[in-house]
Write a protein that binds this DNA or RNA. Structure first.
Lengths: 250, 250
DNA sequence: CTAGTGCACTGGTCGGACCAGTAGGCTACG
DNA sequence: CGTAGCCTACTGGTCCGACCAGTGCACTAG
C-alpha cells in the first residue's frame, strides 16, 4: 500500500504569513533596528488584508520584541534592536509556571558564573580587569550606603566578568536568571539583620575571585565564584535543595 | 524645588490589561493547562472591550505560548502546558539577529552539558543510568542506519544526562541550544565523507563519559563531555573561534 | 524670524458583518 | 432499538467602516 506520503495540511492564518515575512526581513537584515515599517494602513494595502489582520501580526511581532509602535507617531512601527526582554519574559514564565525552584535558579547561576570566570581568566583585557576593580570598589563604598547600591555594584562586577567571557549567550542568560533570582530574594536580603556582615564577606570573596582572574587561573576563579554564590544565597535556599548546590562545589 | 516626585504615567493599552490578567490567572494556577478560556465573544463582555481588543490580547498570549485557539472549537482558547517553544523562538531570533556565532553556541553547550554530567554523576538513579546505556546502544545500532538515527540516539543520551541533573533549567536550555546548533550543522555532518568514523569515535567518547557518570566521578565526566563535544563540532567551527572553545578544556 | 496654530496623519478602540469550520443533538432510516 | 447522517448553534478568522486621542510638520500671524 503506502502510496505517496501525504502530509497533514497546516492551515496558516493570514496574520502568521505577515509575521513570517516581517520576521524574515528583520532577521535577514533587510530591516535594521531604528527603521520604520509602513503605517498599518499602508501595510493592509501591501499585504492585501484588513487592518485587523495587520494589527494582529504587529501584536505578535511586538510580543517578540521585534517592533514597537507608538500611538500618534507619523511613521509606522519602529524596528527594535534585539533585547533579551522576550527571553526574559519566557524564562520568567517558566520559573512561575513550571515552578522553577530557587535552588535550581541559583544552581544555574553558579554554572553560568563559574564558566564566565573560567573564560574571563583566559580572555579578559586590562580594561575589563579595571572594570572589575572599579565594581569591587563600588561594592566597598556601598556597604555604608545600603543594599540597593551594593547590589548594583555586585551586578556590575558579574556583568564585567560575563562580558570578559566573550560569549553573548552567557552574558544574556546570566542577566536574565540573575534578575529572576534577585526578584525572589532581594527583599529578604535587604531585610536580613546581618546584611552588613554578609556584604563584607561577599566583598572578600569577590576579591579572591578577581585575584584568580587576574592571575589567569581559570579553574580557581570558577571554583571560588561557585563558592561565593553558594555562600551568598544558601541561606535562602530550602534545606532539601542544598545538597544539589553543594554537588557543584566538588 | 523638588516637590513631590511625579512619575511619568505609562499609558496602558486595553489589550495589555487583558494579557496581564490572563497571564496572572495562568501563572498563579487559577487556570491550569487543558482548561478553556471563555469564547472571544464572552470575553468581550467580561472585559468590556471590543472583540478586536480581545483578539489582540489572545494573539499576544498565543505568541507567548500560554494559550492556543483553534477555529471552530466550540470551547474557547485552550490553556497550554508550558513549552520551551517561546524560549526557543526568542533564542533563535537572538542567534540570527545578534549573529550568535556557532562557536558561542557550541561553547554554551559545552558548559551546559559538562554541568549536567557533573551533577548527573552524583544524582543519577539506576533507571537513568539504564536509559543512558540504552541510548548508547541505540547510537551503535544507528551507525549502519544513517546519521538521522544516530543523531536521535545521541540526543536521547544527552537528554537522559540532563534529566539526571535534576535541574529543569539545564534540561530546557540544553534542548533549545542543541536544536539551534543542529539546525546550523546537521546538514554538514550528514554530508561529511568520514561521518561513519566520526560516529564511531563519538560512541567511544560517550562510553567514557558514561563510565565516569556510573563511577560517580563528576569532574571527570564533565571534562570528558567537554572534550567529546569539542571533538564532535570543532571541525565546523571557524579557526579563529577555536581557542575560545579550547579555553574550556583546561 | 519666531511663536503659535491647524491639519493630516498615526495607532488604539469600537461595532457589526460574513465565512468556514466544529461539536453535539436530532432525526430518519435500517 | 441502534446508528448513520444531517442540522443547528456555536466557534475563531477576516473584513469593513468609523471614531478618538495623540503626534509631527507645515503654514501662518505676530
Amino acid at each position: 500500500m503506502s502510496g505517496p506520503r501525504f502530509e497533514p495540511v497546516r492551515t496558516v492564518r493570514a496574520y502568521e504569513r505577515i509575521v513570517e515575512q516581517v520576521e524574515e526581513a528583520i532577521e535577514s537584515g533587510a530591516l535594521c533596528p531604528g527603521e520604520r515599517l509602513p503605517s498599518e494602513r499602508d501595510l493592509m494595502g501591501q499585504f492585501s488584508v484588513s487592518r485587523s489582520t495587520v494589527r494582529e501580526a504587529l501584536r505578535v511581532l511586538q510580543a517578540r520584541g521585534l517592533v514597537r509602535s507608538r500611538p500618534g507617531d507619523p511613521n509606522g512601527a519602529e524596528v527594535q534592536p534585539f533585547s533579551p526582554a522576550a527571553l526574559h519574559k519566557s524564562m520568567t514564565t517558566l520559573a512561575r509556571v513550571e515552578e522553577l525552584s530557587l535552588g535550581e535558579l541559583v544552581q544555574f547561576r553558579m554554572v553560568l558564573d563559574a564558566s564566565a570566570n573560567l573564560l574571563a581568566a583566559r580572555l579578559r583585557t586590562d580594561e575589563q580587569l579595571a572594570e572589575m576593580d572599579a565594581a569591587i570598589a563600588g561594592m566597598r563604598a556601598a556597604v555604608e550606603v545600603g543594599y540597593d547600591a551594593f547590589s548594583a555594584a555586585d551586578i556590575a562586577f558579574h556583568d564585567a566578568v560575563a562580558r570578559a567571557s566573550r560569549n553573548k549567550l552567557i552574558q544574556i542568560c546570566t542577566d536574565v536568571v540573575r534578575s529572576i533570582v534577585l526578584g525572589l530574594v532581594s527583599g529578604k536580603i535587604a531585610a536580613a539583620p546581618d546584611r552588613e556582615a554578609l556584604m563584607r564577606q561577599s566583598i572578600g570573596h569577590h576579591e579572591e575571585v578577581l585575584a584568580a582572574v587576574r592571575a589567569g587561573d581559570g579553574p580557581l576563579a570558577a571554583r571560588l565564584s561557585r563558592q561565593t554564590m553558594y555562600d551568598y544565597y544558601v541561606g535562602y535556599v530550602p534545606q532539601d535543595e542544598r545538597p544539589a548546590l553543594r554537588a557543584l562545589l566538588e
